[in-house]
Simulated assay, not measured.
Amino acid sequence: MSNITVCARFRPLSSKEKRDHGANICIQSVDSESFIIKDKKDEGFTFSFDKVFYEKSKQADVYEFLVLPIVQDSVNAIYGTIIAYGQTGAGKTYSMEGLNILESDEEKKGILPRVVDVLFACIRSSDESTKYSIKLSMVEIYMEKVRYVCVGDSDW
């Protein structure tokens, strides 16, 4: 993948949101690339992206569309970056890690565990004369504190 892909993802409403707001949500789906946000005056603003993942989208859908091409490129020595951006509670951690990064539920598994699984599967199936150096890092900024996690920095 040689260009930047920008997607929007909407998580399902929480039980509190459903209770407090019912069916009065401000997001209206248009198609797989656009949505409308309505303000308090009921005016709509249309936003378009390369892809929109609505609340019923599966973790695998996001991974296959957005991340798998980056992982495939990385196996061919092309660097890749994934940025999850949004306000607190928008679903970034769920998208990246899943319910629990150590969770084995395949359907709810996030982007990071899927990346690691596929990278190591590619390495195991590659020619034994091919050498790989893997460094996977993550930076999280939460409440003005930076958390940096670096997974591996080893040769295979």
Score class of each variant (00 low, 15 high):
Ser2Ala: 15
Cys7Val: 05
Ala8Asn: 01
Ile70His: 06
Ser129Arg: 15
Phe10Ser: 04
Glu64Ile: 06
Val118Gly: 07
Thr93Ala: 03
Ser14His: 02
Val149His: 05
Trp156His: 12
Thr93Met: 11
Glu33Asp: 09
Asp73Asn: 15
Thr81Gly: 06
Val118Ala: 05
Ile25Gly: 15
Ile37Ala: 12
Glu17Arg: 05
Lys41Glu: 10
Val6Leu: 13
Glu107Ile: 08
Arg124Ala: 07
Pro113Phe: 04
Arg19Glu: 09
Glu43Gln: 12
Tyr63Arg: 01
Val67Ser: 05
Lys40Ala: 08
Asp73Val: 14
Glu43Leu: 14
Ser126Glu: 07
Ile4Leu: 04
Asn100Ala: 15
Ile78Ala: 08
Arg9Phe: 06
Val118Thr: 13
Val115Glu: 08
Gly86Ala: 05
Glu144Asn: 07
Val146Gln: 02
Gly44Tyr: 03
Gly98Phe: 03
Gly91Asp: 03
Val62Tyr: 08
Ser133Lys: 15
Tyr79Asp: 13
Ile82Val: 10
Arg9Ala: 04
Lys40His: 08
Tyr63Ala: 00
Ser34Trp: 11
Val67Thr: 14
Val30Tyr: 10
Gln87Val: 10
Lys58Phe: 07
Lys51Asn: 00
His21Pro: 12
Asp73Gly: 12
Asp20Met: 13
Cys7Ile: 09
Val52Gln: 01
Asp20Cys: 02
Lys92Ala: 07
Arg147Ala: 10
Leu66Arg: 00
Pro113Val: 04
Ile134Met: 14
Glu107Phe: 05
Ile27Val: 11
Ser154Cys: 14
Asp105His: 09
Val67Trp: 11
Gly98Tyr: 08
Cys122Gly: 06
Asp20Val: 05
Val149Glu: 10
Lys92Ser: 00
Val151Tyr: 12
Glu107Leu: 06
Val62Thr: 07
Tyr142Met: 10
Lys16Gly: 04
Gly22Trp: 03
Lys51Ser: 02
Ser104Trp: 13
Asp61Glu: 10
Lys145Ser: 15
Gly86Thr: 07
Ala60Gln: 14
Phe65Trp: 14
Met1Glu: 07
Ser126Lys: 06
Phe10Trp: 02
Lys40Glu: 12
Val67Lys: 03
Tyr142Asn: 15
Tyr79Ser: 12
Val146Ile: 11
Lys92Gly: 00
Val149Phe: 09
Phe45Gln: 13
Ile27Leu: 03
Phe45Leu: 04
Ala8Ile: 04
Phe120His: 12
Ile82Arg: 04
Gly44Leu: 03
Leu136Gly: 07
Cys7Tyr: 01
Arg124Trp: 09
Ser125Asp: 10
Pro69Thr: 00
Ala60Cys: 03
Phe65Cys: 03
Ile4Phe: 12
Val115Ile: 15
Ile37Tyr: 09
Val67Leu: 08
Glu55Gly: 05
Lys109Arg: 15
Cys122Ser: 14
Gly86Phe: 03
Ile36Thr: 06
Glu103Ile: 08
Glu144Ser: 09
Asp31Arg: 01
Thr93Gln: 01
Arg11Trp: 02
Ser32Ala: 09
Arg124Gln: 15
